[in-house]
Amino acid sequence: MAPANPNLSESDRAALVGQLMNARRAVRDALASGDSAALREARAAVDAAKVALGERGPVWWDGDADLNRRMAKNTPYAEWYASLDNQT
């Protein structure tokens, strides 16, 4: 999981985490009820909360690109990764 944007105030972060938890419960409930429209809406709410928290969407930090969810061999860390002894 990506970290939340540290530039958010504690009150904003707490409110967004609350929204995320509510949206996740809505996903659970929609799955249980089989309501596909509610499920789409709930998943959109999860995504919106994660974007607002900085866990998805444009990067909030300065510097290098987001290499999360990339295979190491396809990143600038490829040489380092290839040198590790514990590859399977």
Rank of each mutant, 00 (worst) to 15 (best):
56 R>P: 06
36 S>K: 14
54 G>E: 02
55 E>V: 05
52 A>K: 10
28 R>N: 15
28 R>Q: 15
50 K>M: 15
59 V>W: 03
61 W>E: 05
27 V>T: 05
65 A>K: 13
65 A>Y: 14
34 G>F: 01
56 R>D: 12
49 A>K: 06
52 A>V: 05
27 V>W: 01
25 R>L: 15
26 A>W: 06
41 E>G: 03
47 D>H: 15
25 R>G: 12
44 A>K: 09
32 A>Q: 11
40 R>M: 09
62 D>Q: 14
35 D>N: 13
64 D>W: 09
48 A>N: 12
36 S>G: 09
62 D>I: 08
52 A>E: 08
57 G>C: 08
54 G>Q: 06
33 S>I: 02
54 G>P: 01
30 A>V: 03
53 L>H: 00
54 G>D: 02
44 A>T: 04
55 E>N: 08
60 W>C: 08
52 A>G: 11
28 R>E: 15
60 W>P: 03
50 K>N: 15
62 D>S: 13
54 G>N: 04
34 G>Q: 01
53 L>Q: 00
38 A>Q: 04
34 G>C: 06
64 D>T: 10
46 V>W: 00
62 D>E: 14
38 A>F: 03
61 W>N: 08
56 R>I: 14
44 A>H: 04
50 K>D: 15
59 V>M: 14
38 A>V: 01
36 S>C: 03
26 A>D: 08
64 D>P: 11
26 A>L: 05
44 A>V: 04
42 A>L: 01
26 A>C: 05
57 G>F: 03
28 R>C: 12
40 R>H: 03
40 R>A: 10
39 L>C: 02
43 R>H: 08
24 R>G: 07
63 G>N: 10
55 E>L: 13
45 A>W: 01
51 V>W: 10
38 A>T: 03
36 S>V: 06
30 A>L: 00
31 L>M: 15
39 L>H: 07
29 D>P: 02
55 E>F: 09
63 G>S: 09
24 R>Y: 07
36 S>A: 13
50 K>V: 12
35 D>S: 04
57 G>W: 01
59 V>T: 12
24 R>S: 11
43 R>F: 03
39 L>T: 01
47 D>F: 14
64 D>Q: 13
53 L>C: 07
